[in-house]
């Protein structure tokens, strides 16, 4: 059923302009502003000093990794209900972008942990949970790579994504109780005003850039799927 949908869809537009570039450009502008403010304008943090500035680039990465995985979850569920191929591409795109942000998050966290906690890695709940989260979604991507049949691959990806996502909260609570001490999630109410603004600025920058990434990755998946499903031309010419 979905093969027909793909075949009858209009051919990819040749124009180089897509809506997501506007979003991406906005994200880039905000990112330059936000990162500059984070580095040089915002005041140093009371306890952590200059090192506290890592917050402005670390926390948005954490938020947006979660947002990307949430997008993947929603499209995976929608795919299970509708079977539309485009939703499968979106899941693939969102999982990949989420995994990328998750790796970034872990590296930043490691850099943050060294001066504040004195170690590169500690079995802190949030660190541990995000490492496990990364592993689960890398598993999803690996599963995708191991299956050739597009329909089967789509279903399995969706199922694995749903399971990986619903497991996040329970993983988080389990490791929190396992190594039970960490400062609670910072929310705007507990962060001083000038810091909230910079944090928000960076969060929106990350959000728009993530949208651009997912949209571009979606188009890549679309192109690849079309290349895959194109009729085997050389064989036809030979007969």
């Amino acid at each position: 059923m979905s093969t027909e949908a793909v075949a009858s869809a209009p051919a990819p537009t040749k124009s180089r302009f897509h809506w997501e570039h506007l979003v991406g450009l906005l994200g880039l502008v905000l990112l330059v502003a936000g990162q500059y403010m984070g580095l040089f304008v915002a005041p140093p943090e009371r306890m952590m000093g200059e090192v506290g500035r890592i917050l402005y680039t670390h926390v948005p990465a954490a938020w947006l990794a979660m947002v990307a995985f949430t997008v993947a979850f929603v499209t995976a569920v929608a795919h299970l209900f509708t079977g539309r191929r485009g939703l499968d591409w979106a899941t693939e795109a969102a999982v990949e972008v989420g995994a990328m942000l998750n790796v970034l998050l872990l590296i930043q966290g490691s850099i943050f942990a060294r001066p504040t906690w004195g170690v590169w890695w500690t079995w802190d709940p949030r660190l541990t949970a995000s490492a496990i989260m990364l592993l689960t979604f890398v598993g999803v991507l690996m599963l995708r790579g191991a299956v050739r049949d597009p329909d089967r691959r789509a279903t399995w990806t969706s199922v694995a994504t749903v399971l990986a996502y619903v497991n996040i909260p329970i993983t988080y609570f389990s490791v929190k109780w396992w190594r039970s001490l960490h400062q609670i999630q910072s929310s705007p109410e507990t962060v001083a005003d000038p810091m909230v603004f910079v944090l928000r600025l960076n969060a929106f920058a990350f959000l728009f850039i993530m949208i651009w990434f997912i949209a571009r990755r979606w188009r890549l998946a679309q192109t690849l799927a079309r290349a895959d499903e194109a009729p085997p031309l050389p064989a036809q010419e030979a007969t």
Partner: peptide, 26 residues
Amino acid sequence: VMVKHSNEYEAPDGHPPEVQTTLVDE
């Protein structure tokens, strides 16, 4: 040893922390 500093992020000369009474927040 785990240090329980509060979850507030404050500028050095900012407002004094208000919610530092609890040792472990959760």
